[in-house]
Design a protein around this nucleic acid. Structure first.
Length: 305
DNA sequence: AGGATAGCCTGCGGGC
DNA sequence: TGCCCGCAGGCTATCC
């Protein structure tokens, strides 16, 4: 399940293969996984030129779980890995054959790039400019989860009746967190996943934002979480799953208190947490907002500030 | 309009 | 051994 750390690991592993490379061929084997747009934002038929044929790659960008391959003339290819998507780089003469390859590129330096995605929850989107991508697809995303901030999360959460876990999974609130790292971050911050978003104090959102940044950073350092499908561009699996404290550990002992970890479906996702360590009572509640008429001041004045 | 739900899609593992 | 079912889940469309 590629979430932010996995997509970032793919991006980093692609850099040496793609930066400065010129695209010698581009083939779309499954047209229905790609959508192309012109400068006016209208959908057009995908042609090799839209898939960066002839372009020189200058930049690989990422926002949340989405990757952007940007060329010197502005042409931009957006890649979303969905659940099982992979971008693989291999020598042109490689004999390894893959199933479910939906697009293939070659570079003038002799590298073949494949996009494969058995479950096809991922896809490709092409734009004439980086700006067009940002306008069409990235403007609906919240801040990148590596930049998670307490005030921004709090602003979204304080008016929401959803469980805090649902808030973390909402890409328009925060871009990049999926089911694995939502559970891990909530455990690290000792927040119960079902707690209503509007019941968290600003200080708790600050702690949660810090946990999100820490969990994601550590996972990137481990090369992402390989459960089954995830690989980076070189076919390497990631070791971050070794660090999971709760995800995939239902019924096993909590690493802090040894109580068996609980599991339930929350926000339509399998959720694992520790009922002992993650309790609302551990967390500062939000300040109660009282009606003005109920406020009394011993000295009869009105407090400012 | 926020929030919940269905559906997309394939591979794998458990149960019989 | 083999078949069937359930599950995994990011995201969009749809409904309430």
């Amino acid at each position: 399940m590629p979430e932010l750390p996995e997509v970032e690991s793919v991006r980093r592993s692609l850099l040496p293969h793609l930066i400065g490379a010129r695209i010698a061929s581009a083939t779309l084997l499954r047209p229905d996984i790609c959508e192309s747009f012109n400068a006016r934002g209208q959908p057009i038929t995908t042609r090799p030129a839209n898939l960066l044929l002839g372009a020189r790659i200058t930049q690989l960008a990422r926002r949340g779980k989405q990757l952007a391959v940007i060329a010197d003339d502005g042409r931009t290819l957006c890649v979303h890995l969905g659940m099982t998507g992979q971008v693989l780089a291999q020598p042109r003469e490689a004999v390894v054959t893959h199933t479910h390859v939906h697009a293939r590129w070659t570079t003038h330096s002799g590298t073949t790039i494949l996009f494969r995605d058995p479950r096809r929850f991922g896809g490709l989107w092409t734009f004439p400019s980086e700006e067009a991508l940002r306008r069409a697809r990235w403007s609906t995303l919240g801040p990148d989860a590596l930049d998670a901030s307490g005030p921004a999360l709090s602003a979204a959460g304080r008016k929401s009746l959803r469980p805090i876990k649902a808030l973390l999974l909402d890409q328009s609130v925060l871009a990049g967190v999926g089911n694995i790292y939502a559970d891990e971050a909530l455990f690290a911050a000792r927040i119960p996943p079902r707690l209503r978003a509007d019941r968290l104090a600003a200080a708790s959102y600050e702690a949660l934002a810090a946990s999100i940044r820490a969990v994601l950073t550590r996972a990137i350092q481990a090369g992402g979480s390989t459960l089954r499908d995830y690989r980076d561009a070189n076919g390497q699996s990631g070791l971050a799953a070794r660090n999971h404290a709760v995800y995939g550990r239902a019924g096993q002992p909590c690493l802090i208190c040894t109580l068996p970890l609980a599991t339930a479906v929350i926000a339509q996702r399998t959720t694992v947490w520790c009922k002992q360590c993650q309790r609302a009572a551990n967390i500062a509640p939000p300040p109660r907002i009282q009606a003005a008429k109920d406020l009394t001041y011993p000295h009869g004045g009105v407090e400012m500030g």
